[in-house]
Simulated scan of single mutants.
Amino acid sequence: MSITKRTSLFAMLIMVMLVAAACGDKADNNAQTEDTTKTETAAAADTDATKTEDKENTEASTEPAADEEDNSQNVELGTTEKGSYTNDYFGVSLKFPEEWEFQDAEGMNELTSASSDAIAGDDDTKKKQLELSQAKTLNLLMASELPLGGQEVGPSAMAIAEKVSLLQGIRTGKDYLEATKKFMVDSQFPYDYKEITTETIGGKEMDVMQITMDAGDGTTITQDYYSTIIDGYAFNFIFTYLDDASKAEIDNIKKSVQFK
């Protein structure tokens, strides 16, 4: 697989696969800590008060958080048309060049599934992580100047949302992006990273992480990851560009973003 093609697959999938991999580990660690605490408490004193406290903690841990109860039933994937995307649930809209190609949710699912197979390879653990993450992820928008899933990388814009929980340690867009970076570094992706900053886009403050990668032909691929928490979801934009001309196109898309 050429580095350009491989980069294209990473660009499509990296945010989709993130939280299950990074935050799943946090959830497991939290569970292990809780089990250890319970064991030590039981060994110290098996009193009625301890039993009552354990029962209350168990009941509390099984109750859904207020932001997770029913809102997933009302989430919509939005509407993608030639040159525009609108989503009333997340209260966002944007415009992209009318000549660009775009995919609906079904098409995005097919592309990310293909990317998942290519990236996971024979790693069963990664396969399970990817499957879990895809099950929690809403593919909202994928628009690109060049054919999607093709052999070349061009400027593109993506929007995805993933259900998150405070139990996973994801409270802000910065938390989400830090988990993204950790996953990339641990997976030895050949990226260079800039510090996470904040930026107001379309009237909403979002956390931003920029990464770059040498495409191997003298071209540098840049991706800007924007993330914020909306109604219990990590809502994300991924903007990809390669040079000043494609950056100008992406800047125009960013300027068109509006949050209600």
Rank of each mutant, 00 (worst) to 15 (best):
E76D: 08
L77T: 11
L77A: 09
L77V: 10
L77G: 15
G78K: 04
T79E: 11
T79S: 11
T79K: 07
K82D: 10
G83Q: 03
T86C: 01
T86F: 02
N87K: 02
D88M: 00
D88Q: 02
D88H: 05
Y89F: 07
Y89H: 00
F90N: 02
V92F: 01
V92S: 01
V92K: 00
S93G: 00
L94D: 02
L94M: 02
K95C: 04
K95L: 09
P97K: 03
E98L: 01
E98C: 02
E99N: 11
W100G: 00
Q103V: 09
Q103R: 15
D104F: 04
A105K: 13
A105G: 00
G107R: 00
N109W: 08
N109V: 14
N109R: 15
N109S: 09
T112A: 10
T112G: 07
S113Q: 14
S115W: 07
S115M: 15
S115T: 07
D117V: 09
A118I: 06
I119N: 08
A120I: 03
A120M: 02
G121V: 00
D122S: 14
D123Q: 02
D123M: 01
D123T: 00
D123A: 00
T125Q: 13
T125M: 04
T125Y: 12
K126D: 05
K127I: 00
K127T: 12
K127A: 06
K128S: 06
Q129S: 08
L130P: 07
L130H: 14
E131V: 12
L132T: 13
S133K: 12
Q134P: 00
A135I: 05
K136S: 12
K136V: 03
L138V: 08
L138E: 06
L138R: 10
L140W: 10
L140G: 05
M142H: 11
M142Q: 15
A143N: 07
A143S: 11
E145F: 03
L146Q: 10
L146P: 09
L148S: 13
L148N: 12
L148I: 15
G149I: 05
G149T: 07
G150W: 09
Q151N: 15
Q151W: 10
E152I: 00
V153Y: 10
V153F: 06
V153R: 04
G154F: 04
S156R: 10
A157C: 14
A157R: 04
M158I: 13
M158H: 13
I160Q: 14
A161H: 04
K163W: 02
Q168A: 11
Q168L: 11
Q168R: 08
Q168V: 00
Q168H: 07
G169E: 01
G169W: 04
R171Y: 07
R171W: 10
T172H: 05
G173P: 03
G173R: 10
K174D: 11
Y176F: 14
E178T: 13
E178A: 05
E178K: 07
A179F: 09
T180F: 13
T180P: 10
K181L: 12
K181G: 07
K181T: 08
K182W: 11
K182Y: 08
